[in-house]
Design a protein around this nucleic acid. Structure first.
Lengths: 201, 201
DNA sequence: ATCTAGATCAAGGGTATTTCTTGATGTAGT
DNA sequence: ACTACATCAAGAAATACCCTTGATCTAGAT
């Protein structure tokens, strides 16, 4: 891939990091060295259950989903990852254990990826990344906890409204099937929620 | 995957090899041990430029294409791989260098794959495979040379006719866009060739 | 100069695939 | 028995993909 193209893909990651903690130019270079852009096509797996998750993914454009398939074959979406979002199976990544989650692409999606060893060497070469990734993980943790809380304490309708407020953009961009799977309901039931919705606002 | 299913996938490869040089049952077992079936869905990458090609692909059913994307973003198809065909970036596979070619699926496609180390160990355990893969490579070489010759010496119309004769089955199975890209012309021009065609047979 | 082989751009139509909706019916918990 | 949801089936609607055609352009051969 051409160097200028790679730079174009890196720009969003630079500004993402700079938004957290300003980076020196050496640190930016380190990023350029360790992260690799990669295109995944709609439906393509980024990561499959049964494999160890060996890289972190930052989405440049497009949209991914992380999900688990249960014994009945139903898929439960844990998280979407669209522009400027991270989407990783941290459990598998850090424990180096086999993952039970899948990540695949809902649209053609460009991601930046770092492998485990490269990440470690970034920590060694520039400890600022320790702090950055600590913050990232904290944020992810908080988001997951919020979602947990919601799931155990709200009705499908409430969850749907929360989804609309939190991810307004995804709500018109993704198929309803995917949103239903994220909310933990059937597409049919979501369709009914929506039609009730439009009748009495 | 269930054992009987795997056997069903292996059968075409056995007969392919047997058609070249009869195999002993130990040799068949070796194949069963080293080759792995894998399903790719339409549009999925089997291999992407920028990666090292680490496995050889034998198509059981479906169709793949190997192509290069030029600086302008145009894709040039080098080869199709349908049932009982091999489709590999041998350059990258043997040199272990980064590949500039892509392989992706034009239809949902089942392939059998061997990794580099497994192939080597097949050569060691059963030297007959040296001969088999020598023959395979010779055949591929000859086919590529033929295609080269054609490309530098024929008009688009001649190439199209040759394509029709050589791959009659692909000609109605694949979209015209893909055939055009294989012939090195635009889909529009191919469309015109075809309509002239049907006017004066 | 102009003829040929082919490209590019824009628009229209067709068809297949995906997605959404609706009706009918079922079920577990309060 | 009422609420909040699931399941199954079947159409309808929306997209995406593919093909064709017309108009205009270009480079090389004659």
């Amino acid at each position: 891939m051409r160097k200028d193209l790679i730079d174009a893909y890196l720009a969003p990651l630079y500004s993402y990091f700079n938004g957290l903690i300003p980076l020196s130019s050496q640190e930016q270079e380190l990023i350029a060295e360790k992260f690799r852009p990669r295109l995944y096509r709609k439906r393509q797996y980024i990561h499959q259950e049964g494999d160890v998750c060996t890289q972190l993914n930052f989405v440049i454009r497009g949209c991914l989903r992380m999900y688990k398939v249960d014994e009945k074959g139903n898929t439960h979406i844990i998280q979407f990852g669209s522009e400027n979002k991270w989407i990783n199976d941290l459990g598998s990544f850090h424990s180096k254990r086999i993952s039970e989650l899948n990540i695949d692409a809902l649209e053609d999606t460009m991601v930046l990826q770092v492998g485990y060893d490269d990440l470690i060497s970034m920590y060694v070469q520039a400890p600022k990344f320790d702090r950055i990734f600590r913050v990232l993980t904290e944020n992810s943790y908080i988001a997951v906890q919020k979602r947990l809380l919601q799931n155990i304490s709200s009705t499908a309708e409430q969850r749907y409204h929360y989804f609309l407020e939190t991810y307004p953009e995804l709500s018109y961009r993704l198929p309803q099937t995917q949103i239903a799977s994220f909310l933990g309901i059937t597409p049919e039931f979501l369709s009914r929620l929506r039609s009730q919705q439009s009748k009495k606002p």
